[in-house]
Design a protein around this nucleic acid. Sequence first.
DNA 1: AGCAAATATGCAACTAAGTTGCAAATAATT
DNA 2: AATTATTTGCAACTTAGTTGCATATTTGCT
Lengths: 139, 139
Amino acid sequence: MADLDIKAAEMLKVANLYRTKHRVTIVKVLLKAGRPLSQEQIAHRCGKKHFDKVTIYRIIETLVKVGLVHKAYVDKRASHFELAHHCTDRQCHPHFTCTSCGSTHCLMEISLPMAESPHKGFIIKRQKVHLEGLCPDCV
Amino acid sequence: MADLDIKAAEMLKVANLYRTKHRVTIVKVLLKAGRPLSQEQIAHRCGKKHFDKVTIYRIIETLVKVGLVHKAYVDKRASHFELAHHCTDRQCHPHFTCTSCGSTHCLMEISLPMAESPHKGFIIKRQKVHLEGLCPDCV
DNA sequence: AGCAAATATGCAACTAAGTTGCAAATAATT
DNA sequence: AATTATTTGCAACTTAGTTGCATATTTGCT
């Protein structure tokens, strides 16, 4: 997965961040996953080497700050994060949670029109859509 | 506020739930607030009398189960709940969070079209929209 | 009203996500 | 290679939300 290494390092460089082993690994994990992950899931996918949860939270925080990552949703009290590189600056793809099995999926092809802005003095910059229903496995 | 008492008791009756003092008080608090509240905010608005947080969580859980209440959003790790009586069964009004001051508001007049369902095997039953930007005070 | 069955509440102790401060380690700069 | 800027690991902490169980309240019935 040298491709991913290069891509991850490149993303950090563009964002003007120190390219540390931990950051590269975490960006790679998020690239490979292609879907939102919690701190625990990230830690698990980082493998045997020790990745302190504080470090993971701090890296996520940094990546969010520079716009590489954003919080996709909260499930069972755990925030799930994903790379923002497939999102426009106004909205991302919707996420879908199955009310039967509890799984969550990215629905990349759906996009709703933006709410019109301004609305009664509110300047709307971004919009997030979360869907609920039954996933293919539970129908 | 005898009106609210009657309304709250009526809502519990229709939902076929015991009309306890605690439940009536909490429903009244939610009616009066007209916006999502966290457990802590509910406790605060219930006033001097002792309302254990476990009780509040359990009442919320019950109200969610019968559909009177739903979780509107999570802010700073705390879930915020509101009465569902102004929502359709497919979607509610969007919530708006100001990226400058952090306040969250209900935008009652906005409603986006529903994502079409089914989509690739996913049956979409409900949709939640969360908006971000600048509130009138921060513009 | 008074009683029994059904259900709700309070308390104490717990779980787990996320945070903070600080010393040691690593990356960038010269 | 040395200096500086930044990141990481550790330990201890904070806090939203949960669980089990004994006690209190509601409801339906007579």
